[in-house]
Structures are given as structure tokens and as C-alpha cells.
Amino acid sequence: MSAVSPALSHVPREFADVIRAHMADLTEEMIREIQASVPEYSRPGDEEYVRAVRRAVEEALRHFLVRVAGNGASKGRLLEVYRAIGKGEANEGRPLDSLQAALRICARVAWRRLAVESETLNLSRQRMCEVGEAILVYLDEIAAAAAEGYAEAQIKVAGERESRRRRLLDLLVSDPPADSRAVEDMARAVRWTVPRTIAGVALAARSPGVAARPALPPDLLSDLDRSDPCLILPDPEGPGRARALDVALRDWVVVLGPPVPVHEAVHSLRLAREALTLARRGVLACDQVIRCADHLSTMIIFRDEALIRIMRRVRLAPLRALRPAQRDRIAETLLAWLQSGNANEVAARLHIHPQTVRYRLRQATELFSDQLKAPDDRFELEIALRARALAAQAVQH
């Protein structure tokens, strides 16, 4: 590898001498123009920051001179300096465009100095073009190094920020609940506005191993890498919130827990996970976002399945005397009637003739006459019939 790039080898040593002689003036001129043209660098009252800008300009000029002199050993040092500068820009939250604009200004000032000194140095037009090209090549080298450092810092900053966001999610769903001050401090650290209400969201990939990484709204906290992936959705009752989940998470089964105050997030997520288990069993349909708030009675029924099995045996004992197909017809019709109380509505729901409904209801009344009188008995009978229907749905799934 040559000690100096071909473009820099064309720079006359006399021009390097001019830069060396006017180093202080060139540095001041470049700093003034940078501060005047790039708002992000306009901090005349910040002495530490002005020193940082001055160091970047002086390093660029000094290493340019060293490179022109043929000392290639300085290239690695220069690139490290500008990688560090790029990292600093990312950590400060400034766009890379600002740094690139500042470097272009430095090149423009250097070119102006070349134009002023060209006659004294007796430079031909060809030579002028070669020097201009050398300046641009050098500019590209340090800009590329700065961009590399910028990208590295962005990855690190993004990783740290994501780690803090996951920590915030853990605090929100911890049991017992974390201290509210710890939640507020972590929320400030990641610039997350603590909402009035939130909802836990439980997830499962529809096809394990092939679920796409979703593009989620920035205010939504997520951890998709844990064994039980989950989200925290702020303001879950806001317009379009559930729909946004449905669009972003097409490859996932999504269960939205009930809206709760922030300190009850763990309960919302727990219910979402319980509903997700029911969805996996086929008890709840999962073709779109499942809202726990729409299935609370179903979740209650399946909360203690041993108790429900006993209730079914006790309340549905009269059905055991029937043939399986007849048993299903009577149970289906009686449940629909208990839920609506109207034979015509039952007929419409089950897509059968009203007369057929009345016939089945007469049979049901004979079988369950002692359970259709008291409200409590009717309530338990409806629960038992609904549990039977849901269990049959899960078996079919």
C-alpha cells in the first residue's frame, strides 16, 4: 500500500507550506463559517463545544499536511479521530448531514485559499484541478470514517435505549408492582410519556420461527424475544389502537388485555395471557386481535375447569338419557333460548323453523323443568350449557 493516495501526491509542497503558514487563520475562518452556516454547531457561548469543533478542524488540517508530506502512517490515526467525532455526533443526537455540511465548508475554505495563492505558486489550471480533487478525496475519507463511527454509535445507542425500554416494560408488569417513582424515572430516561391507562398484550407467532419482526408504533413498549412475547399499549381505548396492532402483527396471534390504570398492568397482561391460552385451544377465534374485554364471561367459565366440569355433570344430567345427536340439538336450542328468551330469535340464530324451536323447547322444559324456575338455577344452567358449547368448539379446533 502506498504511503499517500494518488490524488494527494499531486498537491504541491508549496501549497502545503501555505496551509501550514496560515493554519491559525484557516482554522478560525472554517470555524466561523461552520457556525454561521450549520445551526447545530452554532454554540459560541459553549467553550467546551467550541474547543471540540476547533480540534476537529485542526486535526483535519494537520493530517492533510502530513499526508501531503507522504507520511501515510497518520491515516489510521486520522480515521480513528473522525470515527470518534462521528460517534460523538450520534451521541449528541445531531444528524450526520450536519457533520458532512461542516466538512464541505472546510473544503470550500481550503479551495478559496488555493485560489488566492494560485498565482503566487504559479499553479496551472490542470494543477489546480488536481489539488481540488485531492481535497475532495481527503474529504471523502474522513467523511466515511465519521459515518462509520456515527453508525456504530447509533447501533449502540439504539441497543441501550431498547434495553431500557424492556426494563421499563418489566417494571410495569412486575408482581408486586414496582414503585411508581422507579417507573416514572425509567419512563423519563427513554422519553416515554406515562399514560392514564394501558393494556398488556400477549402474543404468539402463528407459525413458529417465521413471524416477521413488526414495525410498531414508537409509544408501544415491546419484548418479542422472551419466551412469552408481550407488549404494553398506552391509551388502548384511543381511536385505531387495536387496529394498528392487527395491521402491524399479521404474523402473530394478538390478545389485548383490558384497559387498566398503569399500576395494574400486570393484571391486564395476565388476563391477556389466559385468553391467549384459550385461543390456542380454539375456545376463542384468533383471526384478528382478541379483546379480553369482549370475552370476560368465557374467561371466567374456563378459570376453574374442574368446577365447571362438576357443574356440567350436575346441571346437564338430564341430557345423559338422550342420544348424542339429540343431546346436542336440545342443548344448543336451550342455550340460545336462555340467552334470548324468544323462540323466533332462536330460530333465526340457529337457522331452523320456529316450530322446530318450540318442539325442542317443549322437550327441554320436560327435562329441565326443576331448573327453569329459580333465577339462580337458570343462571347456572346457562353457564353449564355455554361451557359445553365452548368445550365442543375447542375439540373441533
Rank of each mutant, 00 (worst) to 15 (best):
L269R: 03
V260K: 01
H397R: 13
Q154T: 06
Q355E: 12
D376W: 14
A215W: 08
R77K: 12
P258G: 07
Y41M: 06
R188C: 00
H10G: 10
L278M: 06
D251F: 02
R206H: 08
L367D: 05
D376S: 15
L123H: 07
E305F: 10
A36M: 09
R62C: 00
I330Y: 00
A347D: 06
L79A: 15
L284K: 00
L307R: 15
R20T: 11
T298V: 13
I310N: 14
H263S: 08
R112P: 07
G282M: 09
P324S: 06
L334P: 00
A187H: 03
A182Y: 10
E332Y: 10
R164F: 04
A215E: 15
L169H: 07
D246P: 02
L103F: 11
L231S: 05
R67G: 09
W192D: 01
L168Y: 05
S268W: 03
T27Y: 04
D246K: 06
L216D: 02
D294P: 03
D287A: 06
G72W: 09
R67H: 13
V283C: 05
L8D: 07
A36R: 15
S42D: 11
E48A: 13
L381D: 03
G149V: 02
F302N: 04
D287F: 06
R167A: 11
Q363C: 08
G159Q: 03
R104A: 12
R241L: 04
E80W: 12
